[in-house]
């Protein structure tokens, strides 16, 4: 009954059928199975329950399970489609699909918007943008005066907030991101093209034979 032991020794939940996930995403069945090898590695790194907890996600990203990072938190929350505090295998595959090189740019733009819309209001507000700029400065140990930060935020709003209402809505974001594709570089993971090469041991798990 104890929380700690049930978290440590719970049986792995049966993961979703690879063929269903392959139909819904850019990945083939083999690639989904290869992703399971990666998922399993991450999801058993601390809690051994076949679910990715935030600490395990941070450990995989930063080699440190306690490292707090606003943007890693946002990614985790968006991957956690059911919003139950853990990432299941289906959520992992459906979310990584966005980062596949072959996924349409519109999907990446939409995902990035949700990342940056910190409070989920349907637009990126000035305060949110400033909060994110302060977070990246803090993360990078960069020191900038408040005036300089305000200037960066102002200038970005001048470029992106086309109707000047003090918020960047989804259409303004689409226009801005389309004009500045370098902003979306972090939305594409070349690794996903070669996932079966990176994790070839999937054949031991798969038996799917395709």
């Amino acid at each position: 009954m104890g929380c700690a032991s049930s978290k440590q020794f719970k049986r792995a939940p049966h993961h979703e059928d690879a063929s269903i996930l392959a139909k819904e995403t850019t990945f083939s069945v083999n690639e989904v199975e290869a992703l399971y090898v990666l998922f399993e590695k991450i999801s058993y790194s601390i809690f051994k329950d076949g679910l990715i907890h935030k600490e395990e996600f941070q450990l995989a990203l930063f080699k440190n399970s306690n490292r707090k990072n606003l943007f890693a938190d946002r990614i985790f929350d968006l991957f956690d489609l059911k919003r139950n505090g853990v990432i299941e295998f289906g959520e992992f595959v459906r979310s990584l699909h966005i980062f596949h090189p072959d996924t349409p740019m519109e999907d990446k733009i939409a995902f990035a918007f949700r990342l940056y819309d910190l409070r989920g209001t349907g637009s990126i507000e000035r305060e949110e943008l400033k909060e994110m700029v302060l977070a990246i400065l803090n993360e990078s140990d960069l020191l900038l005066s408040d005036d300089a930060v305000e200037q960066i935020v102002d200038q970005t709003f001048q470029q992106a907030d086309l109707n000047g209402d003090g918020r960047i809505d989804v259409d303004e974001w689409k226009a801005f991101a389309s004009k500045n594709p370098a902003l979306l570089k972090n939305m594409t993971l070349p690794y996903l093209k070669d996932i079966t090469m990176a994790f070839p041991s999937f054949v031991l798990y798969s038996g799917s034979g395709d």
């Binding site: 990666l38 991450i42 995989a60 990614i75 943008l129 994110m132 200037q151 902003l183 972090n186």
Partner: peptide, 25 residues
């Protein structure tokens, strides 16, 4: 120079977005 910076370009460099690290063995 801060005046030539785009906030989103700055933010997109966060290590938190570096999902490539998930694939490191």
């Amino acid at each position: 120079k801060p005046e030539s910076m785009n906030a989103f370009a700055l933010i997109s460099r966060s290590q938190g977005f570096n999902l490539g690290n998930l694939f490191e063995k």
